[in-house]
Amino acid sequence: MKLRHLLPAALALILGASALAGDAIGAAQKQPLNLTAIGMFFVFVVATMGITYWAASRTKSTSDFYTAGGGITGFQNGLAIAGDYMSAATLLGLSALTYAKGLDGFIYAIGFFVGWPVILFLMAERLRNLGKFTFADIASYRLEQGTIRTFAAFGSLTVVCFYLIVQMVGAGQLIKLLFGLDYTTAVIVVGVLMVIYVTFGGMIATTWVQIIKACLMLFGGTVLLFLALGQFGFSLEEAARKAVEAHKDGIKIMGPGSLMADPVTAVSLSLGLVFGTAGLPHIMMRFFTVPNAK
Protein backbone atom coordinates (compact mmCIF):
# COMPACT_ATOMS: atom_id res chain seq x y z
CA MET A 1 0.00 0.00 0.00
CA LYS A 2 1.35 3.41 -0.94
CA LEU A 3 2.25 5.80 1.85
CA ARG A 4 -0.32 8.38 0.74
CA HIS A 5 -3.03 5.73 1.16
CA LEU A 6 -1.62 4.25 4.36
CA LEU A 7 -1.34 7.42 6.44
CA PRO A 8 -4.99 8.59 6.06
CA ALA A 9 -6.21 5.05 6.78
CA ALA A 10 -4.06 4.75 9.90
CA LEU A 11 -5.09 8.18 11.19
CA ALA A 12 -8.75 7.38 10.55
CA LEU A 13 -8.36 4.17 12.55
CA ILE A 14 -6.75 6.09 15.42
CA LEU A 15 -9.57 8.64 15.50
CA GLY A 16 -12.18 5.90 15.23
CA ALA A 17 -10.67 4.00 18.14
CA SER A 18 -10.57 7.21 20.15
CA ALA A 19 -14.26 7.79 19.53
CA LEU A 20 -15.16 4.21 20.42
CA ALA A 21 -13.02 4.25 23.57
CA GLY A 22 -14.81 7.25 25.01
CA ASP A 23 -13.95 9.20 28.14
CA ALA A 24 -16.61 7.46 30.22
CA ILE A 25 -14.62 4.20 30.36
CA GLY A 26 -11.97 5.44 32.76
CA ALA A 27 -12.30 7.08 36.13
CA ALA A 28 -8.99 8.95 36.23
CA GLN A 29 -9.46 12.58 37.15
CA LYS A 30 -7.81 15.35 35.16
CA GLN A 31 -4.90 16.75 37.14
CA PRO A 32 -3.36 20.24 37.15
CA LEU A 33 -0.77 20.92 34.47
CA ASN A 34 2.41 19.03 35.36
CA LEU A 35 5.33 20.74 33.61
CA THR A 36 7.90 18.21 34.84
CA ALA A 37 5.93 15.25 33.48
CA ILE A 38 5.27 17.06 30.21
CA GLY A 39 8.98 17.85 29.88
CA MET A 40 9.91 14.19 30.38
CA PHE A 41 7.23 13.21 27.87
CA PHE A 42 8.71 15.51 25.24
CA VAL A 43 12.21 14.14 25.90
CA PHE A 44 10.97 10.65 25.05
CA VAL A 45 9.02 11.93 22.05
CA VAL A 46 12.10 13.69 20.66
CA ALA A 47 14.20 10.57 21.24
CA THR A 48 11.60 8.41 19.49
CA MET A 49 11.38 10.76 16.53
CA GLY A 50 15.18 10.84 16.34
CA ILE A 51 15.25 7.04 16.14
CA THR A 52 12.52 7.18 13.50
CA TYR A 53 14.50 9.64 11.38
CA TRP A 54 17.62 7.47 11.66
CA ALA A 55 15.67 4.30 10.84
CA ALA A 56 13.87 5.91 7.90
CA SER A 57 17.22 6.70 6.28
CA ARG A 58 18.11 3.00 6.50
CA THR A 59 14.75 1.63 5.33
CA LYS A 60 15.21 1.21 1.58
CA SER A 61 13.30 -1.97 0.77
CA THR A 62 10.31 -4.09 1.79
CA SER A 63 12.66 -6.40 3.69
CA ASP A 64 14.06 -3.42 5.61
CA PHE A 65 10.55 -2.23 6.51
CA TYR A 66 9.15 -5.57 7.69
CA THR A 67 12.24 -7.40 9.04
CA ALA A 68 14.93 -4.69 9.46
CA GLY A 69 16.84 -6.34 6.61
CA GLY A 70 17.58 -9.33 8.85
CA GLY A 71 20.19 -7.29 10.70
CA ILE A 72 18.97 -7.56 14.30
CA THR A 73 21.07 -9.79 16.57
CA GLY A 74 19.54 -12.41 18.83
CA PHE A 75 20.22 -10.41 21.99
CA GLN A 76 18.73 -7.23 20.50
CA ASN A 77 15.73 -9.20 19.30
CA GLY A 78 15.22 -10.67 22.76
CA LEU A 79 15.15 -7.21 24.31
CA ALA A 80 12.75 -6.01 21.60
CA ILE A 81 10.37 -8.93 22.28
CA ALA A 82 10.55 -8.13 26.01
CA GLY A 83 9.67 -4.53 25.16
CA ASP A 84 6.72 -5.73 23.07
CA TYR A 85 5.34 -7.70 26.01
CA MET A 86 5.95 -5.04 28.64
CA SER A 87 3.19 -2.81 27.36
CA ALA A 88 0.68 -0.76 29.30
CA ALA A 89 -1.78 -3.62 28.92
CA THR A 90 0.75 -6.01 30.46
CA LEU A 91 1.88 -3.86 33.38
CA LEU A 92 -1.50 -2.39 34.26
CA GLY A 93 -3.89 -5.11 33.13
CA LEU A 94 -2.01 -8.18 34.32
CA SER A 95 -0.97 -6.49 37.57
CA ALA A 96 -4.62 -5.68 38.23
CA LEU A 97 -5.66 -9.23 37.29
CA THR A 98 -3.10 -10.72 39.68
CA TYR A 99 -4.26 -8.35 42.43
CA ALA A 100 -7.90 -9.30 41.85
CA LYS A 101 -7.55 -13.03 41.12
CA GLY A 102 -4.31 -14.03 42.83
CA LEU A 103 -2.83 -17.23 41.38
CA ASP A 104 -5.18 -17.12 38.37
CA GLY A 105 -3.76 -13.76 37.37
CA PHE A 106 -0.21 -15.06 37.77
CA ILE A 107 -0.97 -18.08 35.56
CA TYR A 108 -2.50 -15.77 32.96
CA ALA A 109 0.57 -13.51 33.09
CA ILE A 110 3.09 -16.28 32.41
CA GLY A 111 0.84 -18.24 30.03
CA PHE A 112 1.74 -16.01 27.08
CA PHE A 113 5.32 -17.26 27.12
CA VAL A 114 4.14 -20.80 26.36
CA GLY A 115 3.26 -19.53 22.91
CA TRP A 116 6.88 -18.68 22.09
CA PRO A 117 8.04 -22.28 21.41
CA VAL A 118 4.99 -22.74 19.16
CA ILE A 119 6.02 -19.70 17.13
CA LEU A 120 9.72 -20.59 17.07
CA PHE A 121 9.61 -24.32 16.29
CA LEU A 122 6.36 -24.76 14.35
CA MET A 123 5.81 -21.51 12.46
CA ALA A 124 8.65 -19.00 12.26
CA GLU A 125 11.20 -20.96 10.23
CA ARG A 126 8.65 -22.29 7.75
CA LEU A 127 7.12 -18.87 7.16
CA ARG A 128 10.53 -17.21 6.94
CA ASN A 129 11.67 -19.73 4.30
CA LEU A 130 8.77 -18.68 2.07
CA GLY A 131 10.25 -15.19 1.82
CA LYS A 132 6.90 -13.61 2.71
CA PHE A 133 6.14 -10.92 5.27
CA THR A 134 2.42 -10.95 6.12
CA PHE A 135 -0.30 -13.52 6.75
CA ALA A 136 -2.08 -12.48 3.55
CA ASP A 137 1.10 -13.04 1.53
CA ILE A 138 1.47 -16.53 2.95
CA ALA A 139 -2.20 -17.59 2.77
CA SER A 140 -2.60 -16.33 -0.78
CA TYR A 141 0.55 -18.16 -1.95
CA ARG A 142 -1.52 -21.13 -3.19
CA LEU A 143 -5.06 -19.71 -2.96
CA GLU A 144 -7.04 -17.00 -4.72
CA GLN A 145 -5.28 -13.77 -3.80
CA GLY A 146 -8.19 -11.34 -4.03
CA THR A 147 -10.51 -13.31 -1.74
CA ILE A 148 -7.80 -14.21 0.78
CA ARG A 149 -6.49 -10.65 1.02
CA THR A 150 -10.03 -9.30 1.49
CA PHE A 151 -10.75 -11.72 4.35
CA ALA A 152 -7.33 -11.02 5.87
CA ALA A 153 -7.93 -7.27 5.72
CA PHE A 154 -11.32 -7.55 7.46
CA GLY A 155 -9.90 -9.88 10.11
CA SER A 156 -6.86 -7.70 10.73
CA LEU A 157 -8.86 -4.48 10.99
CA THR A 158 -11.37 -6.06 13.36
CA VAL A 159 -8.69 -7.37 15.72
CA VAL A 160 -6.55 -4.23 15.48
CA CYS A 161 -9.51 -1.96 16.17
CA PHE A 162 -10.43 -3.72 19.42
CA TYR A 163 -6.78 -4.07 20.44
CA LEU A 164 -6.20 -0.43 19.62
CA ILE A 165 -9.14 0.70 21.75
CA VAL A 166 -7.57 -0.92 24.81
CA GLN A 167 -4.19 0.70 24.12
CA MET A 168 -5.71 4.12 23.45
CA VAL A 169 -7.79 4.00 26.64
CA GLY A 170 -4.69 3.18 28.68
CA ALA A 171 -2.57 5.87 27.01
CA GLY A 172 -5.31 8.49 27.21
CA GLN A 173 -6.10 7.90 30.88
CA LEU A 174 -2.42 7.79 31.87
CA ILE A 175 -1.54 11.05 30.13
CA LYS A 176 -4.73 12.66 31.38
CA LEU A 177 -3.77 11.69 34.92
CA LEU A 178 -0.11 12.75 34.71
CA PHE A 179 -0.10 15.71 32.36
CA GLY A 180 -3.46 17.35 32.97
CA LEU A 181 -4.43 17.13 29.28
CA ASP A 182 -7.92 16.40 27.97
CA TYR A 183 -8.57 12.71 27.36
CA THR A 184 -9.35 13.07 23.65
CA THR A 185 -6.29 15.24 23.07
CA ALA A 186 -4.07 12.72 24.84
CA VAL A 187 -5.39 9.83 22.74
CA ILE A 188 -4.94 11.69 19.45
CA VAL A 189 -1.40 12.87 20.30
CA VAL A 190 -0.22 9.37 21.23
CA GLY A 191 -1.96 7.81 18.23
CA VAL A 192 -0.48 10.24 15.71
CA LEU A 193 3.04 9.79 17.12
CA MET A 194 2.66 6.02 16.98
CA VAL A 195 1.52 6.09 13.35
CA ILE A 196 4.41 8.35 12.35
CA TYR A 197 7.20 6.30 13.89
CA VAL A 198 5.84 2.95 12.66
CA THR A 199 5.05 4.16 9.14
CA PHE A 200 8.33 5.93 8.48
CA GLY A 201 10.71 3.90 10.62
CA GLY A 202 9.43 0.39 10.00
CA MET A 203 10.84 -2.57 11.92
CA ILE A 204 14.20 -0.85 12.52
CA ALA A 205 12.57 2.02 14.42
CA THR A 206 10.11 -0.17 16.32
CA THR A 207 12.88 -2.58 17.30
CA TRP A 208 15.17 0.09 18.74
CA VAL A 209 12.32 1.89 20.48
CA GLN A 210 11.32 -1.42 22.09
CA ILE A 211 14.93 -2.15 23.07
CA ILE A 212 15.23 1.20 24.86
CA LYS A 213 11.80 0.73 26.41
CA ALA A 214 12.72 -2.76 27.65
CA CYS A 215 15.94 -1.51 29.27
CA LEU A 216 14.12 1.33 31.02
CA MET A 217 11.27 -0.85 32.22
CA LEU A 218 13.52 -3.68 33.37
CA PHE A 219 15.56 -1.18 35.37
CA GLY A 220 12.47 0.56 36.77
CA GLY A 221 10.75 -2.75 37.54
CA THR A 222 13.81 -4.06 39.36
CA VAL A 223 14.01 -0.91 41.46
CA LEU A 224 10.30 -1.17 42.32
CA LEU A 225 10.75 -4.85 43.19
CA PHE A 226 13.48 -4.09 45.72
CA LEU A 227 11.57 -1.12 47.13
CA ALA A 228 8.43 -3.25 47.56
CA LEU A 229 10.28 -6.19 49.12
CA GLY A 230 12.06 -3.77 51.43
CA GLN A 231 8.70 -3.07 53.04
CA PHE A 232 8.52 -6.74 54.09
CA GLY A 233 12.11 -7.28 55.13
CA PHE A 234 12.92 -8.82 51.72
CA SER A 235 10.84 -11.84 52.70
CA LEU A 236 8.50 -13.30 50.06
CA GLU A 237 6.76 -15.31 52.77
CA GLU A 238 5.98 -12.15 54.73
CA ALA A 239 4.77 -10.37 51.59
CA ALA A 240 2.45 -13.30 50.80
CA ARG A 241 1.12 -13.36 54.37
CA LYS A 242 0.32 -9.65 54.25
CA ALA A 243 -1.37 -10.07 50.88
CA VAL A 244 -3.60 -12.82 52.26
CA GLU A 245 -4.51 -10.67 55.26
CA ALA A 246 -5.35 -7.63 53.15
CA HIS A 247 -7.25 -9.34 50.31
CA LYS A 248 -11.01 -9.84 50.55
CA ASP A 249 -10.70 -13.48 49.36
CA GLY A 250 -8.04 -14.31 51.95
CA ILE A 251 -6.11 -17.54 51.44
CA LYS A 252 -8.11 -18.34 48.28
CA ILE A 253 -5.88 -16.03 46.23
CA MET A 254 -3.04 -18.53 46.69
CA GLY A 255 -4.92 -21.31 44.87
CA PRO A 256 -6.62 -21.78 41.47
CA GLY A 257 -9.87 -19.88 41.04
CA SER A 258 -12.43 -19.33 38.30
CA LEU A 259 -9.92 -19.37 35.44
CA MET A 260 -8.92 -22.93 36.42
CA ALA A 261 -12.28 -24.06 37.80
CA ASP A 262 -12.41 -27.28 35.74
CA PRO A 263 -10.28 -29.13 33.14
CA VAL A 264 -12.27 -27.78 30.18
CA THR A 265 -11.80 -24.17 31.31
CA ALA A 266 -8.11 -24.76 32.00
CA VAL A 267 -7.48 -26.31 28.56
CA SER A 268 -9.48 -23.55 26.86
CA LEU A 269 -7.46 -20.85 28.61
CA SER A 270 -4.17 -22.58 27.80
CA LEU A 271 -4.97 -22.99 24.11
CA GLY A 272 -6.22 -19.40 23.91
CA LEU A 273 -3.00 -18.05 25.40
CA VAL A 274 -0.76 -20.21 23.20
CA PHE A 275 -2.45 -19.55 19.88
CA GLY A 276 -3.29 -15.98 20.81
CA THR A 277 0.41 -15.33 21.34
CA ALA A 278 1.32 -17.18 18.15
CA GLY A 279 -1.07 -14.95 16.23
CA LEU A 280 0.45 -11.63 17.31
CA PRO A 281 2.09 -10.23 14.16
CA HIS A 282 4.53 -7.93 15.97
CA ILE A 283 5.86 -10.95 17.89
CA MET A 284 5.96 -13.23 14.85
CA MET A 285 7.88 -10.70 12.76
CA ARG A 286 10.57 -10.45 15.46
CA PHE A 287 11.70 -13.96 14.60
CA PHE A 288 12.23 -12.87 10.99
CA THR A 289 14.63 -10.07 11.85
CA VAL A 290 17.54 -12.26 13.01
CA PRO A 291 20.09 -13.20 10.31
CA ASN A 292 19.96 -16.88 9.36
CA ALA A 293 17.46 -17.56 12.18
CA LYS A 294 16.15 -21.10 12.62
Rank of each mutant, 00 (worst) to 15 (best):
G250F: 02
M285C: 00
F42K: 04
A186N: 10
R149N: 05
A278Y: 00
G16C: 03
R4K: 11
M168Y: 07
Q29E: 11
L271G: 15
A37E: 06
L229T: 14
A27D: 09
L127Q: 00
M203C: 06
V169R: 05
A68T: 07
Q29L: 11
K132L: 10
K213I: 15
K248Q: 10
Q210W: 01
F287A: 03
A240M: 13
V159H: 07
P8A: 00
G255F: 05
F106M: 14
F287T: 05
D249K: 08
A47K: 12
T150Q: 14
A80E: 14
G22C: 03
V45Y: 00
T98D: 00
I119E: 05
L33Q: 13
M86K: 08
L143P: 00
T59M: 15
V118A: 15
G250L: 00
V159C: 14
I251H: 11
G115A: 11
T90V: 10
L120N: 03
G69K: 02
G155Q: 14
N292C: 02
G250Y: 08
Q167F: 01
F200E: 06
A278K: 09
C161Y: 06
P8W: 09
I38V: 05
D104K: 08
A109Y: 12
I38N: 01
G22M: 09
G257H: 03
I148S: 02
V190Y: 04
P291I: 02
L20Y: 12
V114K: 09
A266W: 06
A37Q: 04
T36S: 07
T90C: 11
G255L: 13
L218M: 09
M217P: 07
F121I: 09
A293S: 13
F275T: 15
M285R: 11
T277W: 02
V267L: 10
Q76W: 07
V198P: 13
R241L: 00
M49N: 06
H247L: 08
V187H: 03
E237C: 04
L33E: 13
A139C: 06
S140M: 13
A56V: 02
F121P: 02
F234Y: 15
T199H: 14
T289R: 03
T90I: 03
L11H: 03
R126C: 04
S87G: 09
I212L: 15
